[in-house]
Nucleic acid binder design. Sequence first.
DNA 1: AGCATTAGACCGACCGTCGGTCTATAATAT
DNA 2: ATATTATAGACCGACGGTCGGTCTAATGCT
Lengths: 236, 236
Amino acid sequence: MLEGTELARVIKSPEVRSAELLDCAQRLFFQRGYDDTTVNDIIREAGLSKGAFYHYFASKEALLEALAARIARESLAELEPMLEDTSLDAIGRLNALFSGSQRLNVELAPQLRKTFAVVFRPENVVLFHRIDEVARELALPMIARLLRKGSEEGAFEVPDPIAFADMLLQIRLIFRDVMHRALRQAEGGDLEEAAHMLEERLRIYGIAVDRLLKLPDGTIEAVEPGFGRAFLGAQS
Amino acid sequence: MLEGTELARVIKSPEVRSAELLDCAQRLFFQRGYDDTTVNDIIREAGLSKGAFYHYFASKEALLEALAARIARESLAELEPMLEDTSLDAIGRLNALFSGSQRLNVELAPQLRKTFAVVFRPENVVLFHRIDEVARELALPMIARLLRKGSEEGAFEVPDPIAFADMLLQIRLIFRDVMHRALRQAEGGDLEEAAHMLEERLRIYGIAVDRLLKLPDGTIEAVEPGFGRAFLGAQS
DNA sequence: AGCATTAGACCGACCGTCGGTCTATAATAT
DNA sequence: ATATTATAGACCGACGGTCGGTCTAATGCT
C-alpha cells in the first residue's frame, strides 16, 4: 500500500530495452551534457532500476561508447549513398558530401539546427568527440577511396588519399565552433550578421577544399544561398 | 598528541601557492587525466588543505581553466617571436611557425615527446580541448594578421585571413591523433614504420598548407629529416 | 499435461568516493 | 585591539557502481 513510486517489474526483450536506454541517454546527454546527466536520471526516465541498467551496460562510460557508435553509424548510413552514387563523378560526389545537396539544403535546416545546437555546446565536448571518433573511423576509408578514385580519373590531384581524407575530416570540425558562434549570435538577436558569417564561412570552407584538391576556387559549393537564414532562423 | 600526519600551518604568498597548485595539477592531470585526478590528490601533493585549495580556486573546473590559460599563454609566448621576426618574409615566418625551425626540429624532439605523449592520450581530451580553446583565441589574430600581410604583399593568396587562420589552426589538430597513433605504434616496437608514417604525415601537412595558400607544393616544410625517429625514439 | 530447473531480466538498499561547504583558528595587516 | 586573510579538516549530499536477492518465462523431464 502507498508504494506509489515503486517500479513495476516489466520485462522486455534486450534489444528493446537497450534501445530505450540509448534513446533516453541520447535525449538527456544532448540536453544537459554527459557529465550533468546521472545514471539515476536515465533510469528514472527509462523506467527501470539501477540493477537493470548495469545489467545492460558495464558503466556509464560504456553507455556513452555505445551511443556514440550508434549515432556515428546512423549518420554515416545517410552519407553513404552520396559516396556511392554512380550517377555522379568524383567531384559531384564530393559536392554532395561536403556541402551538400542533401544535408545542408534549406529544407533540412530546421532539423539540423536542433541537432547541432546541442552537440556543439561546450559542455558536450566529450560527447561530440566520442561520436566524431567513431564517425571518422567509419568515414575515413570511404573518403579515401573516393579521393583515390577521383585522383586516378584526373578529376583532382591528391598525393596521399588517406592523409588527405583525414585532413578533410579534420577541417570540417571547424564548424563545431563556427556553428556554435553563429547560433549564439542569432540568439542574441543579430540573425542577419550571424547568417552572413555562417554562409561566408561555408563558402570559404568550399574554397579550402578546392585548394586542397587543386581545383579552381569555387568548384565545391558548400552552401545553398539562404541556408544561413533558414538554419539560424528556424523555430527551435 | 599522535597527530603525526597533521598538516603544519604553512603560509605562503598567494602567487607561490597558486603556482604550486597549478604545477601539481598540471603534473597530475597530464599523468592521469582531469577526471581521474581528485582534488584530494592535488592537495595531498601540494601539501595543503581543502579549505586552502578552495580559497584559491572556486572549483576544480576553475583550476582547469586557469591551467589551460597558463599553458596556452606559455606556448604562445614561444611562438610569438617567429610571427614577429622582421628578418623573415611572410612565407619564412609561416615556415618557422608551421614546421618549424624551432618547434619540430630534432634537438627539441625529446622534450616534445614528453609533452605530447600525455596531452594526446584519449583520457585527456577535455584537458586538451581547454588548452586548445585558449591557445586558438590567442593565436587567431596573430595568424590572421600574418596571412593578411602576406596576402597584401603578394606572397600568397588568402580570400579571408580570419577564416583561413581558423582553418589552419583547426587542421593542425590532426596531429593529436597522428602523434598518438605514432607513439603507440612505436611503443609496440615498430619504430621505423611509425617514424616514417609521422614524417610522411608532416610532409603532407605542409603540402596542405601550401595548397590552402596557393603556394607550390613543397614550399612550406613541416619536418626536418630524421625528426620522426628522434621524436619517437627519444628516451621517455 | 504437470512439475522441476534454470537463465537472465530486474529490483533497490547499500557502499565508497568525489567535489564542495562550513566552522574554527592561526597569522598578518591596520 | 580588531579586521582580514590564509589556513585546517570535519563534514555533506550526490554520484557511479555493487550486491544479494526476486521474479518470470522458457526448457527439460517424467
